[in-house]
């Protein structure tokens, strides 16, 4: 079983991200593997354990993104590939999907390609279905459980309306959610192995595709208006007394 996990590097969720001089900045906050993509790596490793095979972590990003790939290696991925090219700085999600699909083909295809549900930075959640579309493979989104059986995969999709069981032939694209289980911590051995691993870097030219022109472009960034909330603590002799005051305060806000 050949499994590819697509991961991205993003600023840590605790980072104080802001818009400054038309740029997004996060100071010296650390860059980490996109938290949703840890579930993708976890799902991939679980399937490797269940069926045998290999897990390849794949990322489009700058040189710094090696660290995110190393995290995947330390968790247990067998190899990692970085697609890095200044020409890719401004691609949109369709462009990213085309480049990922080309990289997946260059790797030699896969039985399953696993994605996170969405990125913390862009937050679109569109790259997995777009990659599936470019590859022409079935898309199984928001997956919390996976069972592979002779050339097909059955998954449980965790949706707002309940859990849906869906079956498709392999190869398939999956996006993985939290119900897959807590991502494993890198082991000591894993960290050592990752620190020594050679991570090949592929340029767009090596992928044999042209740089996709971005259709979606950012024209401006700004900081959201900051509403300074001052919390009014409602006190009282008894819970009932507190509740009476609180109920009045809530109704006075006219939100009900």
């Amino acid at each position: 079983m050949k499994i590819i996990a697509c991961i991205k590097q993003v600023p840590d969720s605790e980072a104080k991200v802001k818009a400054e001089n038309g740029q997004v900045t996060w100071g010296d906050a650390p860059l980490v593997i996109n938290p949703f993509d840890e579930y993708a790596v976890e799902g991939a490793l679980q399937q490797k354990e269940a069926n045998g095979g290999t897990v390849t972590a794949l990322c489009i990003g700058p040189e710094t993104a090696r660290e995110a790939l190393k995290h995947a290696l330390a968790m247990g991925a067998d190899e990692a590939i970085l697609v890095s090219d200044p020409a890719l700085n401004d691609i949109d999600s369709v462009g990213a999907a085309r480049v990922l699909a080309a990289a997946i083909n260059k790797i030699g295809g896969a039985d399953m390609v696993m994605f996170g549900r969405q990125t913390l930075d862009n937050g679109a959640g569109v790259t997995p279905p777009q990659t599936a579309r470019v590859l022409g493979w079935p898309m199984l989104g928001w997956v919390g459980q996976i069972k592979v059986d002779a050339g097909s995969v059955q998954v449980e999709r965790v949706l707002e309306e309940g859990r849906q069981t869906v079956k498709a032939n392999l190869p398939a694209v999956l996006s993985i959610v939290q119900s897959i289980g807590e991502p494993r911590y890198p082991s000591f051995m894993g960290i050592r192995k990752a620190s020594k691993a050679a991570i090949p870097v592929w340029s767009v030219a090596e992928l044999g595709v042209s740089v996709p022109a971005a259709v979606v472009t950012r024209v401006e960034i700004s900081n959201p208006p900051t509403a300074e909330t001052v919390c009014e603590i409602i006190a009282g002799e008894t819970p009932e007394a507190i509740a009476e005051t609180l109920a009045d305060k809530i109704l006075a806000e006219k939100v009900l």
């Binding site: 802001k18 997004v24 937050g123 950012r218 960034i221």
Partner: peptide, 13 residues
Amino acid sequence: IYEGKVLEKTVCN
């Protein structure tokens, strides 16, 4: 974007 920490204006061409 960035979990609502920043707003972006974008267009689709």
